[in-house]
Design a protein around this nucleic acid. Structure first.
Length: 590
DNA sequence: AGTACCATGAATTCTAAC
DNA sequence: GTTAGAATTCATGGTACT
């Protein structure tokens, strides 16, 4: 099958040609935060020496997050090292109680371990962030009092922080408690309940009571005729979030129907601009919840089959203008035959597919393609309908294409790259396995689709943008902006997978980027202090992009399709937490 | 009724180092 | 040849839409 792919090299994306720069001397060893010249921000020597000396990797991990060695030791002693989440929770609580007694001080390095504690980001001069801003200091002090109260009431610090950030400094304790209650309802309680009640709580996500909460407790504007609609069951939400057919969002380049105006909720209006992505076909209520957290912005549901030859139904929530969008050129081929001309020769007339289904993280096995070959080859002409049906079903299920007589095959990784709008070999090399390439690609953006939405930024930021990229994966947003010709000034890229970070780093160097790429591995470590340090360094973010994990939302998941409160997908709340922090902090940089 | 779905985990096979 | 670890194969429903 590999031989049949050679003809694909004729496709004419030209954006590889500018990417032939020599790889400069670069040290990619740091898994934490790395400067473009390869120096870890921590001062890599110090950080690594402490790692060698420390008897506990976990201890070091938390110390590097800014907690004092003494405090971390104590907590580890108490709870063991296994459950890092629990440890973090405890540390945050201690920190909250400590800081509320001296609200103006930021995390203080432990004098006993000043060589590393809390110093990870000291290269960013941040000593005067708050010093001449009494207003902010006052607000933060008040927030700390509130925070302490909430923590004392038994709420998790993270949840309390989110509530304070979301409702603002003037929110009463009662409002905050209510907010946390509802957030917990969406996130935590579900898992504790038996299946039957679980359903009720999922329904609760769009219930009248919930909506009343939104408009009254959160102080959001009631829509006209609200009282009537509240009596009217779920019509409003159901209508608002109904998947469009055709799934073209506010418009795609290849269809004539466009929406050119929309009214954003006031809280959502940027800058900073944000762009959130996840699977469109999530369990019921999920998009309602996501939309509610993201300032009530209506999701834009788009199927990438209008941009390329493969379907990819996704929902996007963003506060970007939607006028004067333009697509990347050349427009990618939008049928299987155009994308893979060599398959045409072998394509049976009874395989009526013209588009591929969604590119996923796994591929069909060699055994399966062999079974199909045997099933088809015993017939001189078209196989009987039952065989056709079986083969077509498997081809649809596994996205198989015809690469020889009676021979089907899954797409090669480079073909998937091309379909998704990435440079060929984007995920190749660097020790990544074939399986992992499929996995990384299957979790990625479709670049042309995202670029179309982001294209409006080009005339707004002719000198480039500062990008915060959460759950970066293989850098779909970065590639999209680059292909749009939008200079990337400073990019903070947060991605858990090391191979993915390496892919983005390699791409960054090969494309001769002039800006700076900082990478981190865990969104949960990106707190207000670190954001403040980053934003003060280069003056805030213009765009916050993120597609949070879909594992617990995706239809393919048989095991743990638990909704937004699932293990991975609940990281959406970190996207919101960070976005809200950046939004609140951005006033200073405008 | 038919269709699609950014998946997970156990079992199995493959690979490379010894 | 043994073996540990990595890569691959396979079985696994259910939801929410057309």
């Amino acid at each position: 099958m590999g031989g049949d792919d050679s003809g694909l090299e004729s496709d004419n994306f030209d954006w590889n040609t500018e990417d032939e720069l020599e790889i400069q001397n670069y040290n990619s060893s740091s898994s934490c935060l790395t400067l473009p010249n390869g120096d870890a921000v921590t001062g890599s020597g110090e950080a690594s020496s402490s790692a060698v000396l420390a008897n506990s990797k976990v201890l070091d991990h938390f110390v590097s997050m800014g907690f004092s060695r003494e405090m971390v030791s104590k907590v580890i002693q108490e709870y063991g090292e296994e459950n890092e989440d629990k440890l973090l929770e405890e540390l945050l609580t201690y920190k909250a109680l400590e800081s509320s007694s001296r609200p103006l001080q930021r995390i203080e390095p432990d004098p006993c371990s000043s060589e590393n504690a809390g110093s990870s980001w000291d290269d960013f001069s941040d000593t005067d962030i708050f010093s001449d801003d009494e207003e902010i200091a006052k607000t933060m002090s008040e927030n700390d009092d509130t925070l302490r109260s909430l923590v004392k009431m038994g709420y998790k610090q993270v949840e309390a922080l989110i509530a304070i950030e979301r409702l603002g400094p003037n929110a009463s304790l009662e409002e905050l408690v209510d907010f946390i209650g509802v957030a917990q309802m969406a996130k935590a309680e579900d898992a504790l309940l038996p299946p039957q009640e679980k359903l009720q709580y999922n329904d609760y996500a769009k219930s009248n009571k919930r909506r009343l909460y939104d408009y009254e407790v959160l102080g959001r504007k009631k829509p006209r005729g609200c009282e009537k609609k509240i009596l009217n069951e779920d019509d409003e939400d159901a209508e608002a979030l109904h998947l469009p057919n055709p799934m073209i969002g506010f418009g795609v380049p290849t269809e004539s129907s466009f929406i050119t105006h929309r009214r954003l909720p006031e809280d959502a209006i940027g800058p900073p601009y944000f762009y959130y992505e996840n699977v469109a076909l999530a369990p019921k209520g999920v998009w309602q919840t996501i939309s509610r957290f993201l300032y009530d912005v209506e999701p834009e549901f788009v199927d990438s089959k209008f941009f390329c030859a493969a379907a990819r139904k996704r929902g996007y929530i963003h506060n970007l203008p939607i006028q004067n969008r333009f697509p990347l050129l050349p427009l990618p081929p939008r049928t299987i035959h155009e994308a893979f001309p060599l398959t045409k020769k072998w394509w049976p007339s009874w395989d009526i597919r013209t588009k591929l289904n969604c590119l996923q993280t796994c591929i069909g096995s060699a055994k399966l393609t062999e079974r199909i070959r045997k099933a088809v080859e015993i017939y001189d002409e078209d196989p009987p309908e039952s065989v056709q049906k079986y083969v077509l079903h498997q081809c649809r299920k596994w996205n198989l294409v015809w690469v020889g007589r009676n021979k089907v095959a899954p797409l090669e990784p480079d073909e998937v790259e091309t379909l998704l709008g990435f440079p060929r070999n984007h995920t190749r090399g660097g020790g990544i396995s074939r399986t992992d390439r499929y996995k990384s690609l299957g979790n990625s953006f479709q670049v042309d689709t995202v670029a179309y939405h982001l294209s409006v930024l080009k005339e707004m930021y002719p000198n480039g943008i500062n990008l915060l990229s959460l759950f970066s994966g293989i850098g779909g947003a970065e590639v999209a902006l680059h292909r749009l010709g939008i200079p990337l000034k400073n990019v903070v890229s947060v991605e858990k997978s090391e191979v993915n970070r390496n892919i983005v780093r390699s791409w960054w160097e090969q494309t001769n980027q002039k800006g700076n790429l900082y990478d981190m591995d865990d969104v949960r470590e990106l707190d207000g202090d670190r954001l403040e340090q980053l934003m003060s360094t280069f003056g805030g973010f213009d765009l916050i992009v993120g597609g949070s994990p879909c594992n617990n939302l995706a239809g393919s998941n048989r095991v743990s399709r638990d909704g937004l409160e699932g293990k991975e997908s609940s990281l959406f709340f970190d996207y919101f937490r960070i976005l809200d922090l950046v939004k609140n902090m951005s006033a200073k940089y405008r």
